[in-house]
Design a protein around this nucleic acid. Structure first.
Lengths: 276, 276
DNA sequence: GGGAGCGTGTGGTCATACCACCCGCTGCCG
DNA sequence: CGGCAGCGGGTGGTATGACCACACGCTCCC
């Protein structure tokens, strides 16, 4: 019964002071129709304004119940909603932890939406052709040493994946991810975080394309070379050169993608099945 | 197969045949750790592949329980998750209804993310200047009569809002929305659905800017004129002209935005908190 | 000293009950 | 005869209390 047992633990834990007045507040100030949403918003606010830093562990569900003065159902739905938003991660048997917001998670829904709409590859490349060369050009102007280093690391990873492509499908996967990562890094290098944000949902829909491209056309090595050329121009601060290099790369990728699609014209009944 | 009990009811309702084997399936085929997610995925799949059309009403929660062979908790969490994804709308006391996927809802999380990151207006306009003129140019090439008509309607709405701006804040709101809608329509007019998708989360973060712009700088009438000019070029199929018109418009908007920001230097209540 | 085992805490699930609300039906009343 | 008040069943929203499976730390035995 000594509930006040000191909360040891290495991981950061927090106290959520709450005078149980939530149920009352809802009627007065809050505009939400249901409690769960209200609780979720309360927590979201504290997470977003930094009060609950990333990595922090939330109180247990049963504790949050008494903190907010609501039932566990409500708390669970609130946590679930926040997890869905990418604000926290729920680890069964352990607890709920605040996660760092990142563009990839935030754009998950949008990615799914794009995927569902079954965008024509042509449309995808059209917008990439508009965005990415411009991004590369700006990256050449603004890239920081840290980003340059990150890109070097990425190129090394890509290379090792390319060299062992025949070993297993795992390497194909590694290559596809590293490939997309490179483009994401270029976006980051621009210094304008919105580029990252905008590009992310688009790239998410390219994983399949890359996988097929590698398998059917064997374009991995060529892609690595393209990336290297882009990287060099960016690292050298050659804006125009970076733009051109990226343009050429995207043209090449598109032609590979088209080739790989032609090579796989059958299997239209159930090709995807990309459950992870 | 006896579960095929016909469901009456006037409103569109569906039967969810399910041999209660979900709990078993989870152990075998499904990779999900929790039932709610499994149920959500089952439903999401049926919604996304069109089996459950938009507007359809799902069986009651208590019915879904027996359909899936799980408790109401699980069903509720699944529905809640789907609602969060924008796949359905839960109306208390009535039921859950499948909603049409739309880019705006799908990009909600991304919009929130952008908002939280407190993007510099400069960054926002940088990417708009890259995207929107190109979009306008393509819209001039691809606009369908329907879109042209929709844009005309939009311009009328904008005009009526502009003429009554002094009447109330409601009109300011109406103008701001119509303004953003116009830009969205240009994206739609390109014929490439990805433009809409990409632009949507960006525009969401412009509402405040527009509101301030109208109040502080009184730029509404000028914006309307700009929009008219852009519309004319698009309707005339003048690609280069549309691009130029949009370019000018965005330049103007940016200068208004900067002016309105200078005029409102109060903003000391919420310190930046920009993590990078 | 190290590994097996136990105990406690956590999220995951269940069953049941009650509430507030929406809506269609019914029947009273004008 | 027509309109509207009232009732009742259905629906989602919430509360409770009870288990379960699992993770983790601690202890105890080898």
């Amino acid at each position: 019964m000594t509930a006040l047992r000191a909360i040891r633990h290495s991981s950061v834990t927090v106290v959520i002071p709450e005078p149980t007045a939530l149920r009352t507040l809802q009627k007065t100030a809050d505009s939400h129709s249901n409690l769960a949403e209200a609780v979720a918003d309360r927590l979201a606010e504290r997470i977003l304004n930094g009060e609950l830093a990333s990595g922090t562990r939330l109180p247990a569900e049963r504790q949050l119940c008494v903190d907010f003065g609501v039932s566990r159902i409500v708390v669970r739905e609130a946590l679930k909603a926040l997890a869905e938003r990418g604000l926290l991660e729920i680890r069964p048997g352990v607890g709920s932890f605040v996660t760092a917001l990142d563009a990839a998670v935030a754009s998950r829904h949008l990615s799914q939406y794009i995927q569902h709409r079954r965008i024509e590859p042509e449309h995808l490349f059209e917008i990439r052709r508009l965005l990415e060369p411009a991004m590369a050009a700006q990256a050449a102007r603004n890239a920081t040493p840290e980003i340059v280093q990150a890109m070097q690391v990425n190129l090394k990873l890509t290379q090792s994946a390319v060299e062992r492509l025949e070993d297993s499908d795992v390497q194909i996967e590694a290559f596809a991810w590293a490939d997309l990562d490179f483009h994401q890094l270029v976006a980051t290098a621009t210094g304008n975080p919105l580029y990252e944000t905008v590009l992310s949902p688009l790239l998410d829909n390219l994983l399949d394309v890359r996988r097929r491209g590698v398998r059917v056309v064997g374009s991995a090595r060529q892609a690595l070379n393209d990336h290297r050329r882009i990287f060099e121009r960016i690292a050298a601060g050659d804006s125009a050169g970076a733009r051109r290099a990226m343009q050429d790369h995207i043209d090449a990728v598109q032609s590979w993608a088209e080739a790989s699609l032609e090579g796989a014209t059958e299997a239209s009944d159930a090709p995807p099945q990309t459950s992870s």
